[in-house]
Design a binder for these strands. Structure first.
Length: 236
DNA sequence: AACGCAGTCAACCGCCTGACT
DNA sequence: GAGTCAGGCGGTTGACTGCGT
C-alpha cells in the first residue's frame, strides 16, 4: 500500500521533486510502448528512479496527450461551479466533465480562484452558505468503484484491459480503456449518441438525470420542485 | 537592486477501495 | 475472512514566479 511507496521512496534511492525533461521522455516512451496502467512496472520498464505513484501522477497531470493548459474559459468555470455544487470536492469527477483538464488543475483552480471569489463575496451570505454547505464532509459522495476485474469485463462484453491498452494505448480523448469503462464516461457517450445539444464541447442539456439522482443523497437541496439535473446544470 | 509577500501549481502524502490470494 | 497489493483520490506542501515596495 502506501507503505510500499514510502519504503521505495526512502530506502532505494528513489528520486523526489521536480521531473527533468529526460525523465519525462523516458516516461512518455514507456507509456507509449506499454500503454497506461500497471504503474508498479513503469519505473523498471522506463528505467526511472521514481515510485509508481509519482510516475502515474506525472503522466496524468502533465504528460498525457490532450491536456489543456492555460486559463479556464467562462464555460468551464461555470460548469465547474455547478458540478462542485452538485458533487462537492469530487475533483476527479468534475475534471472528467471538463475535457483536457485534470483533477489537480481543477482542485488548484478552485483553491485559488474560487475561494478568493467567494471571500470577496462575503456580503452575499447566501452564496457563501451554499458553497460552505457543499464542502461539508457529510455532503461528499463516496467514490464509486472505478476499476473492473478482467473477469468482470469479460462477462460484460468489455474488452480485455491489458490487450486493449497495449494495442491501442490511449483513445482519442486520452483515456485508457479502463477509464472508458467508467460508468460516468459511458453516460457521456450515451448522451452523444442521443444527439443532445453540445456547446463549446460541453453538454448543455440531457444530463444523466437518473444517474445523478441515484448518487446524490438529497437532490432537492439543489433542485427546485420538478426540476431535473439537466435543467439545473444548464441554468445560468 | 534587494527584499518580502502572495499567488500558482507540480508533487508528495496518507488514506480508501477493490481485486486477488 | 484476513492479508496484501495496486490504483486512485483529496488534502497539503513547498518551490517557483511575479509584483509591489
Amino acid at each position: 500500500m502506501q507503505a510500499s511507496c514510502l519504503v521505495e521512496g526512502s530506502s532505494s534511492g528513489v528520486r523526489k521533486g521536480a521531473w527533468s525533461q529526460f525523465e519525462d521522455e523516458l516516461l512518455k516512451d514507456c507509456v507509449q510502448r506499454f500503454g497506461e496502467g500497471k504503474w508498479h512496472l513503469v519505473p523498471e520498464r522506463a528505467g526511472l528512479k521514481r515510485c509508481r505513484k509519482s510516475c502515474r501522477l506525472r503522466w496524468l497531470n502533465y504528460l498525457k496527450p490532450n491536456i489543456k493548459r492555460g486559463e479556464f474559459s467562462e464555460d468551464e468555470v461555470d460548469l465547474m461551479i455547478k458540478l462542485h455544487k452538485l458533487l462537492g470536492n469530487r475533483w476527479s469527477l468534475i475534471a472528467g466533465r471538463l475535457p483536457g483538464r485534470t483533477s489537480n488543475d481543477v482542485k488548484n483552480y478552485w483553491n485559488t480562484n474560487m475561494r478568493n471569489k467567494i471571500h470577496s463575496q462575503e456580503k452575499d451570505k447566501t452564496i457563501m452558505k451554499e458553497v460552505i454547505e457543499t464542502m461539508k464532509p457529510n455532503e461528499v459522495i463516496k467514490p464509486q468503484p472505478r476499476t473492473f476485474s478482467k473477469k468482470l469485463l469479460e462477462g460484460n462484453k468489455f474488452i480485455d484491459l491489458d490487450d486493449n491498452c497495449s494495442k491501442n494505448g490511449i483513445n482519442e480523448v486520452g483515456a485508457t480503456s479502463l477509464e472508458a469503462n467508467n460508468w460516468w464516461d459511458t453516460l457521456f457517450e450515451e448522451e452523444k449518441d442521443n444527439n443532445y445539444s453540445w456547446g463549446n464541447g460541453f453538454l448543455q442539456t440531457g444530463f444523466w438525470d437518473e444517474e445523478l439522482n441515484s448518487i446524490t443523497t438529497n437532490p432537492f437541496d439543489l433542485l427546485n420542485e420538478s426540476q431535473i439535473w439537466s435543467e439545473f446544470l444548464s441554468q445560468t
